[in-house]
Design a protein around this nucleic acid. Structure first.
Ligand SMILES: [Mn+2]
Ligand SMILES: [Mn+2]
Ligand SMILES: [Mn+2]
Ligand SMILES: [Mn+2]
Lengths: 223, 223
DNA sequence: TTAAATTTTTAGACTAATCTAAAAATTAAT
DNA sequence: ATTAATTTTTAGATTAGTCTAAAAATTTAA
């Protein structure tokens, strides 16, 4: 039986997964240090360990990518994180801006039985409170097509399906201006100078959104 | 703001609380080493640290007792442990013999907001699945009078209100012989030789119970 | 009340995770 | 194509938590 990952190792694996885009872009030492709020020297050490454990592929000075077993571990952690976020919002009445920090702790609880029962208790949700897809017990994620609101042009429309970032300040702001998942949105005007746009939100009227915000909002085609 | 306790420190504080009886019996180094599955030398070191942090009172070679702040911390951890056990049994359909290990992890999740919301979600339970009282948000526990089944004499009767031990093998055995919390029990005979007793359980008829079992079962007066 | 047994503490060492400072390799700019 | 800037790795320390072995204190027994 292979020994289970330490909390720190889990956080590295998750960070590598989340920084790395598809397909396999090599994740740099500095990017990891940044993401994990640690120093490059520390990352270099940990990378050697994870590489030795065959969780990542590593060539000196070339960055890392997850191996198959590394990806599997990452997906398990992300699954737990997102299921717990659903629990916190749907059953404990937390707001979507309050759950990420707590889920950062809960995602490390080790018990596959617990995760699967939690999944059932929650009704096998497919997305978390921020619109992120929840991997199933086999690590499969199904992810509908979507694009950033910042990439849409005049008269394009769709449904708000996610936010890319879980910064509480962003989420609270979106709450305040009534931008929520599931709402229909239509771009009415794009300002070429600063990329700010005007949108019509469901039946709540029109509003202006800065590029800082539109670059964090995911829209799906309104089929 | 005082830095929060490490997972290890929390486990020491909890162990000291649970070993120490009322009033303040000094908890020995060996008892702690035993309970925490570690070595006396390790305990000696940690004791110095906890003493320095004023969580325990310590005199060399004399054992330790919790300070007021130490007790407060212990009660917070125990509250979390027991609330999570209620969640696991009542909402995720775990059996009472399956929850202790998982609760050992969940009890270290740090968020008072989470604990209090969980408490409300569960309906502010006063006991956990093993009959142990759950401290409230202020650390208050209310504990009805009870005695061990092993201390009862012929014709005494009462209600089964708790088990002292969470060993899965004990709990599974109690399940198998239909010994559950809330049942009425009457001692029909005590065997002086081996302290085994015969009992009448609710309307399930009579059975024999060894001292090993009766010494783990708590009975309250049937008022 | 000495001696023996037990408990507890100290001394010294190890691992995981971290840091700073400096060296080495890579990448970008002249 | 050299040089300069940046990134990454190594070297050497540090802290928390742990261990073994040995010394010191306490408790128990003769
Ligand atoms: Mn999150
Ligand atoms: Mn999320
Ligand atoms: Mn328990
Ligand atoms: Mn319990």
């Amino acid at each position: 039986m292979k020994k289970s990952l330490s909390l720190t190792e889990e956080n590295y694996i998750k960070a590598i997964f989340q920084i790395g885009t598809t397909p396999e872009s090599n994740v740099s030492t500095n990017a990891l240090a940044d993401n994990l709020q640690t120093k490059p020297a520390t990352v270099s050490d940990m990378i050697k360990k994870l590489s030795h454990k065959k969780l990542i592929f590593y060539e000196k000075y070339k960055g890392v990518t997850l191996s198959a077993s590394g990806s599997k571990e990452a997906l398990k952690i992300i699954r737990k994180h997102r299921l717990w976020e659903v629990f916190l919002v749907n059953h404990l009445n937390f707001k979507w801006d309050q759950v990420h920090e707590i889920a950062e702790q809960l995602e490390h609880i080790k018990s596959s039985e617990l995760v699967n029962r939690l999944d059932d208790f929650l009704g096998n949700p497919t997305i978390d409170p921020h619109g992120d897809p929840i991997p199933d017990a086999n690590g499969q994620v199904q992810l509908g097509p979507s694009k950033l609101l910042s990439e849409m042009t005049s008269h394009e429309n769709g449904i708000i399906v996610g936010v890319k970032n879980e910064d509480p300040l962003l989420l609270q702001h979106l709450d305040k201006i009534n931008v929520r998942l599931g709402l229909h949105i239509e771009v009415t005007e794009v300002n070429d100078f600063d990329q700010s746009i005007q949108v019509k939100l469901a039946d709540l009227g029109t509003m202006f959104l800065s590029e800082k915000i539109t670059s964090q909002i995911l829209i799906a085609k309104n089929l």
